[in-house]
Simulated assay, not measured.
Amino acid sequence: MKEVNEMQFRDLNAQYNKYKTEIDNAIQRVLDKGVFIGGDEVSELESRLAAYTGTKHCITCANGTEAMTLVMMAWGIKEGDAVFVPDFTFFSTGEIVSFVGATPVFVDVDADTFNMDPKKLEEAIENVLNEGILTPRVIIPVDLFGLPADFDNISRIATKYGLKILEDAAQGFGGSINGKKACSFGDASTTSFFPAKPLGCYGDGGAIFTNDDGLAELLNSYKVHGKGNNKYDNVRIGVNSRLDTIQAAILNVKLTAFINHELDDVNRIYRLYTEKLDGIVETPVIPEGYVSSFAQYTIKLKSGRERNDLQSKLSSEGIPSMIYYVKPMHRQGAFNNIVSDDNYYKVSNLLSDTVLSLPMHPYLNEEEIELICMSIKAYFGLS
């Protein structure tokens, strides 16, 4: 058993130690071959990821943020376009919209799932249409903390208004709805291989998924300087966004582990946490038919003071925790130019004040979970 003062929020060393031989050998094979960009490992990974998610095309790239940016470029999203994103999420989901000159329109989230609220989404679309300044183009639902968004209702709304859906599954890889995998919803989907994600490499990396042949062809061009028949035949302005061969080799090992046991393990840990914390704090809500890949295990407290005091107590006992996210999107300084009514984002504002994420990864053991839960119970005078 680890001492509590050695506890990791997401223990990447434990994963590496378990698969050290496989990872080291995979890296060595790349070094021996000397093909560091576009090697066989990249093609193998793309094929395996497409098969796992049930999509026709997987296009790897440099990171999850650029994955979304590439889709915006391929769809021709530009100034004057409105793109609807959840207000409670990581900054990059809105950033990539502004990056291509379009306007992010923030949508409040559901109080239980923390994901985009379909009712608030439709209200936001109607508001934009009534104002007549921007043209609604895209919805970007986020699979927050590993839980897929409400794609049944969001897809219905997208069809009604003629909008495209880009699923931001940076945190959602491995999640599912009634057996349909995250990264397969919408017109295109993206994920991130940042080390702390459900499937992470040892640096930056990302991928795009789609069943659209034409979109896949465009993305493969845009990600390599707008190439045509080859990288020296440039038919459009693109970017340089490729996944390194070494990272692909690492991800191939990690994908096997993820499929074989890691997704099952984090869901077992979710059940243990929830059983021990039931009735003490608000624990994650997983709707019927949904599976989360638990990028985070996030509890909700009654107030900001309670959340902060509990975090301080956990820290004093060597238990790491994190706040995702301290600011909703509409309060970010980078979006000061976008007029937002703070009263419209009541749920996002509340979550930013009251959520706390506990250690969560496939290698967390039951003794560590017990220590964490006992500390939380003690805070509430229940030990």
Rank of each mutant, 00 (worst) to 15 (best):
W75F: 15
V235W: 01
L129M: 12
I27F: 04
E167W: 01
K197T: 11
L310P: 08
N365M: 07
L358T: 05
E95W: 03
D265M: 06
L272C: 08
N252T: 09
E3W: 04
A124E: 13
E167R: 14
N260M: 10
Y52E: 12
G228Y: 08
V107N: 02
S375P: 03
P141W: 00
T93F: 04
D152Y: 08
N178H: 14
E79S: 15
A207K: 13
K2M: 15
P136L: 10
H225N: 15
L199E: 12
M1D: 14
G39L: 08
Y232M: 12
Y363D: 12
N267D: 11
R307W: 05
N153R: 13
S357A: 15
P86E: 10
R236G: 02
G205E: 01
R156N: 09
R271H: 10
A74K: 07
A334M: 13
E79A: 14
A170Y: 00
G318F: 01
A67E: 11
G214W: 02
F114Q: 00
E131C: 10
L350D: 14
S221M: 02
V355Q: 13
I369F: 01
T354M: 03
T65G: 14
N267W: 02
T159H: 09
F173H: 05
K18R: 10
I157P: 05
A74N: 05
M1G: 13
N230W: 14
S47L: 08
G226D: 10
I299A: 04
S375E: 06
V105C: 07
L277W: 05
S352P: 03
V100F: 00
D341P: 04
S192L: 11
F145G: 03
L163G: 00
Y379G: 13
I250P: 09
N343F: 05
D150L: 02
Q296V: 00
E122K: 05
P328E: 10
A182S: 15
Y202D: 15
A378T: 12
S192V: 12
L382E: 15
R29Q: 14
I259T: 03
N115E: 11
S316W: 04
V71W: 01
D187M: 01
A257C: 09
T159V: 09
F194P: 01
M72N: 09
D108N: 14
L147C: 09
D187I: 09
P198C: 06
F185C: 09
N17K: 13
G132L: 07
P287R: 11
D81K: 09
T274L: 06
G206R: 04
I133V: 15
D81P: 06
Q15T: 09
E306Y: 02
Y345N: 09
Q247Y: 06
V266N: 05
F209I: 15
G175K: 01
A196Q: 02
R331A: 09
G226Y: 02
P362M: 06
S92Y: 14
T89Q: 06
Q171W: 09
D264I: 10
P104L: 12
M73R: 14
V100W: 00
I77K: 01
L199T: 06
N336Y: 06
